[in-house]
Design a protein around this nucleic acid. Sequence first.
DNA 1: AAAATGTCTACTAATTCTGTATACTTTATA
DNA 2: TATAAAGTATACAGAATTAGTAGACATTTT
Lengths: 143, 143
Amino acid sequence: MLSKKTKYAIRALIALGERYQKESVNISFIAETEKIPKKFLEQILLELRNAGFLYSKKGAGGGYSLLKDPQEINLVQVMRLTGGPIAQLPCVSLNFYQRCDECKEESTCGIRDTFKDVRDATLKILSETTIADLIAKEKRLAG
Amino acid sequence: MLSKKTKYAIRALIALGERYQKESVNISFIAETEKIPKKFLEQILLELRNAGFLYSKKGAGGGYSLLKDPQEINLVQVMRLTGGPIAQLPCVSLNFYQRCDECKEESTCGIRDTFKDVRDATLKILSETTIADLIAKEKRLAG
DNA sequence: AAAATGTCTACTAATTCTGTATACTTTATA
DNA sequence: TATAAAGTATACAGAATTAGTAGACATTTT
């Protein structure tokens, strides 16, 4: 399951992406328009900032803006940052690998093999989907 | 993430599938050979039994055996039974649908749209993979 | 009768996820 | 220069989920 945290992060990036190279936005505004608990959102935006996605400015009139081009931010990046592994099995995760402790022989595990395929398929879709795509898609769907 | 429960269920089905229409196996044996906590496994096998996958016999010399053909049991069935939804978003789940409470308009949600694709790709792989496939795959991998 | 097995339900422990609280720093501006 | 409006940082708390344990019971074989 996608965590709320990740979902909120994506929504916030969409909101910021819509104003890319235009205005900056403050946390309260995003929290209200996207129905995200403000304090929780603070943490999330902070992480995104520390990871280099966002620029922030303190003080009156301050706020957040997107540093990277929305076309350059895909969902794999966001998910790994806020939600951890993409893979459904730790022994198949590229960035958060962990051996299964009850596993006899990793190399002959059929479950592992199958979930590698699932991981690859998921990774393909999510890495090909950018914040810019989501913005465009939502505009299109809203028609 | 795949729950331990689901993973244990799959492993147990593989163990039983290897003896399909041959011997029956008791819980303790599976628990030991697959390194699964016995009491936990009891619950899992019971669920599989109640769902019609297994036949069981009580008493001395009793045990479990597979009722369905391993070729007829795919991973989607097992996962839905023991782990719940396959989809990573509740609003995209076929069998466990739930609306997202912070969602403004489901029909124009780009996240939803993307995770529908992920669900479909996952579903395809998992529905095409049967217990028999896993058994064959493990034999092959073991060389 | 005794031992070996599965059945059933309730409980507990551990972990993870969500969200809150609080104190602090920086900036604009009146 | 004081004040208010922002973001920064860390710690904590509550809720939900997952994992695992306990114990009494039912059935079957020997």
